[in-house]
Design a protein around this nucleic acid. Sequence first.
DNA 1: GTAAACTTTCCAGTTACATCA
DNA 2: ATTGATGTAACTGGAAAGTTT
Length: 217
Amino acid sequence: MGPDDASSLSAVSSFSNSSSIKRERELSGGEEEVEVERVSSRVSDEDEEASPRKKLRLTKEQSAILEDNFKEHATLNPKQKQDLAHKLNLRPRQVEVWFQNRRARTKLKQTEVDCELLKKCCERLTDENKKLQKELQELKSLKLAAPFYMQLPAATLTMCPSCERICNGGDGSSTKAFLAFGEEEICTAAGTQLTGNCSKAIALYSGDLNNNNQNFG
DNA sequence: GTAAACTTTCCAGTTACATCA
DNA sequence: ATTGATGTAACTGGAAAGTTT
């Protein structure tokens, strides 16, 4: 008969007697019986008799029922605990411990999931940061060069819809073009709304997002 | 009303044991 | 047959909240 033998819910689980073990350990030290009894009462259930701590395995049926109950509520009130213990032929303490361990497992799993998400998020941000740094370098070198429109074919020049300045097309590189005018001149007219790309790039360009947000806010 | 003692419950960390590769 | 890794039942100690004295 293996531990999974589900011939009955009672086949298992009455060995470990925490209070007797506790008593055994503490008394071997030779002192303080009163204190030991008090502490032990914390976990004692009615039917205690001395036996060494033995690891029990709950049957599949018992586990399944406990799982079902856990799905409904992750904590138990005393009545629920008592009923469940009776139904499974376990001691209430065992049911209580099972729920505690189950909550701990759930929490651990969730922590692992969160950790994975954070890792991925971190990778994405690192990636984005690299790209932005690269773009920033390009913008800086552009600024040092001659006015951008002199370097571009006329056909590639378009107007920024938000600030109505010339840029080189709508391919996402417009920020470079506007920034080429110089930090002071960009979109500073009253009431001008910057697009997300524009303002973000400008903020990065100046190296201070907060300052820029205040300026344009 | 309130302070101290006691109880209950939960959690985090740990231990002990069963099982499996 | 042995062993290390893994899963999990059970234990411990401390904190918080509730109850009793």
